[in-house]
């Protein structure tokens, strides 16, 4: 017995190393029908029930709001933060409830904060993009800005900041539009609590960084690149000449052509295509990218600009003005 007692810890240690959840060699025959039956019963009951986290008993909204600010390392005014998370639909729902119970409590929704945040974001993103893409035309910058301010992008950011459960809305799960609006309201709240420089950095760190690994040219569709390029070149007075510099499998379905654009007999860019016309168009696009300094191999966008960049809109090249 003494022997057993003495070596019990050792034995326990050896047992610990043995994996307990050894997976069987096969999936048993009963698994599939059981899962099907469970799914069927769930469907009969009206689909999967998702319980909002904020209806749980130990949910503490105040603590969550405080932690939200601390997680992001931002100083939010607590009242403003609560207001930013209150959607209009929630206020209406609450007012109806209060009418039934016959008492009146004033609640603020986030509409004003949304407006304020949106205005600030639009301005800041515009200025920032102008600073980091100095040669890109205004139309392109607006295209990128519209992409960054789109509902899908903002909703995605908002969701991953963890606003989904904190948002006070009538419906659960919350709509994408409400998620996006909440993010704008958060920026608005931060603007009032910590000032524009701090909120600018917030927008930079969470919204503008969405451009990481993206091709900025995708957000601006150029209808006729060749005309745009010739217009640009006509001012400088240099001669632009497209040359067919490569073709492969001319009589086949997989024909591929390469057109090079020569500016004063020096190669500017080249483009590929299944026809000569497409290749020429692509070459013009490549040339425009080169002029706008947004080529495939461009230096990554600087996400570390501090403060609010100064406006350069007046000096900047505009396509529509020409």
């Amino acid at each position: 017995m003494a022997f057993v007692r003495r070596f019990t810890p050792l034995l326990a240690k050896t047992f610990l190393n043995i994996p307990i959840n050894t997976q069987g060699r096969r999936i048993h025959r009963w698994v599939s029908p059981t899962l099907i039956e469970l799914k069927y019963r769930e469907k009969k009951q009206g689909g999967k029930v998702i319980n909002p986290r904020n209806t749980f008993l130990e949910w503490n909204l105040e603590a969550e709001l405080y932690a939200f600010g601390k997680r992001l390392n931002e100083e939010f005014d607590s009242d403003l933060l609560l207001q930013a998370f209150t959607d209009r639909s929630y206020v209406i729902k609450e007012e109806m409830k209060q009418k039934e119970m016959e008492f009146d409590l004033k609640m603020k929704d986030n509409r004003e904060l949304v407006k304020e945040g949106e205005k600030f974001m639009e301005e800041y993103i515009q200025l920032y993009l102008e600073a980091v893409l100095p040669k890109f035309p205004v139309e392109g910058i607006v295209g990128i800005k519209n992409h960054l301010m789109s509902e899908s992008v903002l909703a995605n950011i908002s969701l991953h900041l963890g606003t989904k459960d904190i948002i006070l809305a009538a419906e659960y799960p919350v709509e994408r539009q409400i998620l996006a609006n909440t993010f704008k309201a958060l920026v608005g709240a931060l603007l009032q609590s910590s000032g524009d420089e701090q909120s600018g950095h917030f927008v930079r760190d969470f919204v503008i960084t969405q451009l990481q690994g993206q091709d900025v040219n995708d957000y601006w569709h150029i209808e006729d690149p060749w005309t745009m390029l010739t217009d640009l070149m006509s001012k400088t007075g240099s001669e632009l000449e497209p040359r067919l510099i490569g073709e492969v499998g001319k009589n086949t379905l997989l024909a591929c052509y390469r057109v090079g654009l020569y500016l004063d007999k020096k190669m500017l860019s080249s483009g590929f295509g299944e026809t000569v016309a497409t290749a020429k168009e692509m070459a013009a696009r490549e040339a425009l990218k080169k002029i706008f300094a947004t080529e495939e191999n461009m230096y990554p966008i600087n996400f570390k600009l501090n403060g609010i960049p100064k406006s350069t809109s007046d000096l900047r090249y505009k396509i529509s003005a020409n």
């Binding site: 091709d215 040219n217 995708d218 492969v248 499998g249 086949t252 997989l254 591929c256 390469r258 483009g271 590929f272 295509g273 299944e274 497409t278 290749a279 692509m282 696009r285 490549e286 495939e296």
Partner: peptide
Amino acid sequence: MSAAKRVQQWATFARTWH
């Protein structure tokens, strides 16, 4: 797929005749 990526793919998989 953007237009630039499409033609890049087309050129990459072009079948050359030797």
